[in-house]
């Protein structure tokens, strides 16, 4: 199920400097992004893994980089991913064919998007 637009944009805005104090106390921005990406990609077939480099900077714009590893080749499916991910304005991402997974940096964290959809 796609996360609501409000939820996604909320995360996008929260990643940068003006994060509400209550939100800062509740959860780290990277974790919010992780959850939002997981919700956004849930249900899309052929994704074998999603890995994230969290880049949080104080006083400036933060960027995160996600690597969406694809088990199958389907550019119409990819269009669905692109459309959903376009709602994040502070998350770069790559579509990585599974055979190139070794090119993903090792300092990434894995995002669980639900075993049923992997």
């Amino acid at each position: 199920m796609l996360a609501t637009t409000d939820a996604i944009f909320g995360v996008s805005r929260d990643v940068g400097a003006p994060v509400p104090a209550s939100s800062q106390r509740r959860v780290a921005p990277a974790l919010e992004v992780t959850s939002a990406i997981a919700a956004t990609l849930e249900g899309i077939p052929g994704i074998s893994a999603v890995r994230l480099i969290a880049r949080n900077r104080t006083g400036g714009r933060s960027h995160h980089k996600a690597f969406i590893v694809l088990r199958t080749h389907d550019i119409e499916r990819d269009a669905q991913i692109v459309e959903r991910m376009s709602q994040f304005d502070q998350v770069d991402y790559d579509l990585v064919p599974e055979e190139a997974e070794g090119m993903i940096p090792s300092d990434t964290i894995e995002i669980q998007i639900g075993a049923a959809h992997c």
Partner: peptide, 27 residues
């Protein structure tokens, strides 16, 4: 045109950087 643009950007990035061998002329 953002979705079309981003789709082209992502696929060409996958082609150039990850050297995907999966692309076809149908794609």
């Amino acid at each position: 045109t953002k979705v079309d643009y981003d789709q082209l950007k992502q696929q060409s990035h996958t082609a150039r950087y990850y050297l995907s061998n999966r692309f076809t002329w149908a794609d």
